[in-house]
């Protein structure tokens, strides 16, 4: 009689540790199950080479942006402006090359540096001026969108001729280029978050801001750095997208779609908004799930509209699962 609850308790605890250790595993299972489902319901079209490439191309930019979002969420912050940074960066390259005659490589470096500076500004506004990041980056979102639309007249631009060829291929135009960039970014930041001092301090700042300060961690530096990381990853995603679709579009998702997809990916991947914990690999899997959904629905012939329904449901479900899991983790029992 008494043995039974005790066993149930240890079982729950063990599932708890398993689900936490391998939080990514449950997301991976969903991603795989979805692939199987779409493969059968599309009579094998889903997993063809061409379609896998489509999925990879949809996953990559979202996952890259999501990695930056994960770093910020773990830090206890958020950035709503990354999507516009993604849209703005290729324009900066375009302006530098076509209006000021800067060679392509320095122009790329300059554009990414400007993105980093935008991230730095966000970070300084949040830390030194104490504006909550939700509001601060909402402000920079509109500000940057204004800059983007006024300078471009809201018209798409051509990829600078000087960038065509090898640079364009490497930066996204080649079949699997954006996926490779994405995997490199994910691997790198998985290591940064879990195996370096920066990652540990990012977790500490998000988990216990006062304690981290008391321990002598320079919390402003960590936060500003992560805002810069998010902005630079946004810039990278924007460049990859522009070079892939071979056009610089001020509306890549109007600037918000990419941000929202990335936040969804992070959340579906198992990163909580409370700060202190998160997973980069989960974010990649989250982005993959979203790409699979969109692509699969498309193939089956379901219109794009119910996609939003599914997306909303998926986010709510993952948040509920997240709450459940963290309670399981804290107490060993739901």
């Amino acid at each position: 009689m008494t043995a039974l609850p005790a066993t149930a308790f240890t079982a729950a605890r063990r599932t708890g540790t398993f689900l936490v250790r391998w939080r990514e595993a449950s997301v991976l299972v969903v991603a795989l199950a979805m692939a199987v489902y779409f493969q059968t319901s599309t009579d094998g079209v889903f997993l063809t080479h061409d379609n896998l490439r489509n999925i990879a191309q949809a996953t990559a930019p979202a996952a890259i942006v999501a990695v930056g979002i994960v770093m910020l969420l773990v830090n206890g912050e958020i950035d709503l402006s990354v999507g516009v940074v993604a849209a703005l960066t290729p324009f900066l390259v375009h302006y530098a090359v076509d209006l000021y005659g800067v060679p392509v490589l320095p122009a790329l470096v300059l554009a990414v540096a400007i993105a980093a500076f935008i991230g730095w500004c966000n970070g300084v506004i949040v830390t030194k001026l104490r504006v909550p990041s939700l509001v601060a980056t909402l402000g920079s979102y509109y500000f940057l969108l204004g800059v983007l639309l006024t300078t471009s007249d809201a018209y798409p631009a051509q990829i600078p001729a000087a960038a065509a060829g090898r640079i364009q291929s490497v930066l996204g135009a080649a079949d699997w280029a954006s996926l490779i960039w994405c995997l490199v970014v994910v691997a790198l930041f998985h290591v940064v978050l879990t195996r370096t001092r920066w990652g540990l301090h990012t977790i500490s700042v998000g988990g216990n801001l006062v304690g981290a300060t008391e321990a002598g961690i320079r919390v402003h530096r960590i936060k500003i750095g992560n805002f810069m990381i998010a902005a630079v990853l946004g810039a990278l995603a924007g460049l990859l997208e522009a070079f892939r679709i071979n056009s610089i579009d001020p509306n890549i998702g109007g600037g918000t779609a990419l941000t929202f997809t990335a936040i969804s990916a992070a959340v579906i991947g198992g990163t909580a908004l409370a700060g202190g914990s998160g997973t980069v690999i989960g974010a990649l899997l989250g982005a993959l799930i979203l790409a699979e959904l969109q692509n699969g629905f498309n193939l089956i012939g379901v219109s794009a509209n119910p996609f939003q329904l599914i997306l909303g449901g998926a986010i709510l479900l993952s948040m509920i699962a997240n709450q459940y899991l963290s309670r399981l983790r804290r107490t060993g029992a739901p």
Binding site: L200, I203, S204, G206, G207, N208, A215, G216
Partner: peptide, 15 residues
């Protein structure tokens, strides 16, 4: 000044 999300040993060597 402990971080709940970190292990005992990471806390002991924090910063």
């Amino acid at each position: 000044a402990l971080v709940n999300e970190l292990s005992v040993y990471h806390n002991m060597f924090l910063n």
